[in-house]
């Protein structure tokens, strides 16, 4: 719902392909697949394979106590932010952070209840993990560890959470509440998420994945933009007709940006169903929809799905000369009926 242009001037990811943007772009453009056997020891998993981030060791990146006791989503977010944050630029009172999530760290929440049911007394939870029990833990930890003391917001937006974060962050800039905002999304692979996704039948790709993608947003002018965020908007399929809502939402995005469907060079969907993809192809054309490789190789990254789609678009800047100055549409849908879209104009022209 944002018509005021913000620009992306930096980004980073931690993905099953590795740490940092380069490994991610290499993996996506190379068609790599990160799925590997998963093993949670005595804990039973519904999956034989998953796309997990290996070698995550926040204590190696960040000093400070308590890092090891944080939930996995918070650790992934901290690792991602550490690759992006520039002290002074992205820190202090005029810097904000907006982080998208779907379920927070549902593993921590379920662990707390499990402890309550099993402990000698029902409130004897592990005190070291209490801070991870609310959804805002990852964003707050980012603020605490890096000194980002402007707006700090956690947005629950399902698969489109990264687009909700972009929209919310753009509005913070437009309202003058911050000079720079890092916006993104994070998702963890844990037994709790694996089982809940399994029971909800909400997995959209062959394997589950995890990771985090973050973007620095600011008003145009200060630095060479990697992309302009031309428009972000969402809607709800009240009649549950998601394909129709995808088309309506994409039209809204294009109208707001003042861009015709024929001028969409590439459309990237964050794990849509075949029917939704077909509907989108009807609007922007099959060429646009198939122009850029998908991120299937990192699996279904849940709350981070749309953020990774944005990362894919940004990853083309400098890699594919023909991408410079092009319009890229990112779409995400959720089983609860929410649909979001964003239009980016890539820099490098």
């Amino acid at each position: 719902m944002n018509d005021t242009t913000a620009v992306v001037t930096g980004w980073s990811v931690v993905s099953p392909f590795g740490f940092g943007a380069k490994s991610y772009v290499d993996g996506v453009l190379g068609g790599d697949i990160a799925a590997r056997p998963v093993d949670a020891g005595e804990v039973v998993l519904p999956d034989a394979l998953a796309c997990t981030v290996r070698g995550l060791d926040p204590a190696a990146i960040l000093d400070g106590k308590g890092i090891r006791h944080l939930d996995r989503a918070s650790q992934l977010a901290l690792a991602t932010l550490s690759e992006l944050v520039e002290p002074g630029l992205d820190t202090g009172e005029r810097a904000g952070l907006v982080l998208g999530t779907a379920l927070g760290s549902v593993q921590t929440e379920m662990d707390h209840m499990r402890a309550s049911l099993r402990a000698r007394r029902p409130h004897l939870l592990d005190p070291k993990t209490l801070a991870s029990g609310t959804m805002n833990c990852a964003a707050a930890q980012c603020a605490i560890r890096f000194g980002i003391t402007g707006p700090n917001t956690t947005v629950a937006g399902g698969r489109a959470a990264g687009l909700h974060a972009l929209d919310y962050a753009s509005r913070l800039l437009a309202a003058g509440r911050a000079d720079r905002v890092i916006a993104g999304a994070v998702e963890e692979y844990t037994p709790a998420r694996a089982w809940l996704t399994h029971h909800a039948c909400s997995r959209r790709l062959e394997w589950l994945g995890e990771g985090s993608a973050m973007f620095r947003l600011e008003a145009p002018g200060a630095r060479e933009p990697l992309a302009h965020v031309l428009a972000v908007t969402g809607r709800v399929a009240v009649d549950r007709d998601l394909p129709a809502a995808v088309v309506a939402c994409a039209r809204d995005v294009l109208d707001r940006a003042g861009v015709g469907a024929a001028a969409v060079w590439a459309a990237i969907d964050a794990g849509s169903s075949l029917r939704e993809r077909a509907a989108l192809a009807g609007l922007v054309g099959l060429d646009a929809l198939t122009r850029v490789p998908g991120a299937e190789g990192i699996g279904d990254t849940g709350a981070a799905s749309a953020a990774f789609a944005v990362a894919t678009a940004l990853g083309l800047v400098g890699r594919w000369p023909e991408a410079a100055g092009r319009n890229v549409l990112v779409m995400a849908t959720d089983p609860n009926g929410a649909v979001s879209g964003a239009l980016l104009r890539l820099g490098g022209a």
Binding site: M135, N152, T153, A156, R235, V236, V238, A248
Partner: peptide, 19 residues
């Protein structure tokens, strides 16, 4: 999204602030 669906509001951004 439940609010939007209950009231028949399709032209909305529907999100939850988890702060």
């Amino acid at each position: 999204t439940s609010i939007a669906r209950e009231l028949g509001l399709s032209d909305v951004d529907a999100r939850v602030i988890g702060t």
